[in-house]
Computed example of a mutant assay.
Amino acid sequence: MNKRYIVTANASRARVFAHQAGVVREVDTLIHPEGRLHTGDLRTGGKGESDDAVSHSPHQSGSDDATMEKHAAFFAKEVADYLRQARTQGKADEFIIAAAPHFLGLIRQKLDKPTQACVIHTLDKDLSSADEEELAKKFRPPLN
């Protein structure tokens, strides 16, 4: 019988579930707190206070978006590395990945070819707060 992992993820958290014989149980959680912060909170060197000369616009410059993207890409690589290790260590030989649409794309980019070949289903939806029972129903064969 194949060893299957279900991974639910967004830019701040990835949860890993073992899925065998219709039973789903959580085996690991990866946390990336930077993915949860607002872009202004990611800056270094200050206390987050602006000087009077700086505009008080709620929207920051494009560099903030680049910072968030960099953090998301870094975490996507961490998730992809975790899956590669699970595959090479024989912990799992099939993967189902459910992630927020943009983050799912980043994970796909970071997966190596052998691990990509083990992904049997993807879902572009953030299910990172779903419980084990919900995931067991969602990913019961045949996959929907």
Score class of each variant (00 low, 15 high):
2 N>I: 07
3 K>R: 14
4 R>K: 04
7 V>I: 14
8 T>S: 01
8 T>G: 06
8 T>M: 00
9 A>I: 02
10 N>W: 13
10 N>R: 11
10 N>C: 14
11 A>E: 05
12 S>N: 05
14 A>L: 07
19 H>R: 00
20 Q>N: 12
23 V>Q: 02
23 V>L: 01
25 R>V: 00
26 E>T: 14
26 E>S: 12
26 E>W: 09
28 D>I: 01
31 I>W: 06
31 I>M: 13
32 H>T: 07
33 P>T: 15
33 P>F: 12
34 E>N: 09
35 G>Y: 06
37 L>P: 00
38 H>F: 10
39 T>G: 15
41 D>T: 07
42 L>N: 04
43 R>K: 08
44 T>L: 14
44 T>M: 12
45 G>I: 05
47 K>F: 11
51 D>E: 06
53 A>F: 10
58 P>R: 13
58 P>D: 10
58 P>W: 05
58 P>V: 10
59 H>L: 09
60 Q>N: 07
60 Q>A: 11
63 S>V: 12
64 D>K: 03
64 D>R: 06
66 A>E: 15
66 A>M: 12
67 T>M: 15
67 T>Q: 10
68 M>P: 00
69 E>R: 13
69 E>D: 02
69 E>A: 15
69 E>W: 10
72 A>D: 03
74 F>Q: 12
74 F>E: 14
75 F>S: 13
77 K>H: 12
77 K>R: 15
78 E>H: 09
81 D>W: 05
82 Y>M: 04
83 L>F: 07
86 A>H: 09
88 T>R: 09
89 Q>D: 06
89 Q>A: 15
92 A>D: 07
97 I>V: 13
103 F>Y: 08
103 F>V: 10
104 L>Y: 04
104 L>S: 00
104 L>K: 03
105 G>S: 12
105 G>C: 07
111 L>K: 07
111 L>C: 09
114 P>S: 08
115 T>E: 00
115 T>W: 01
116 Q>V: 11
116 Q>L: 10
117 A>S: 06
118 C>I: 02
118 C>Y: 03
118 C>Q: 14
120 I>T: 08
120 I>C: 06
122 T>P: 01
122 T>S: 07
125 K>C: 04
126 D>R: 08
127 L>W: 09
128 S>C: 09
128 S>R: 07
129 S>Y: 03
132 E>V: 12
141 P>E: 04
141 P>D: 02
143 L>P: 00
143 L>N: 01
144 N>L: 03
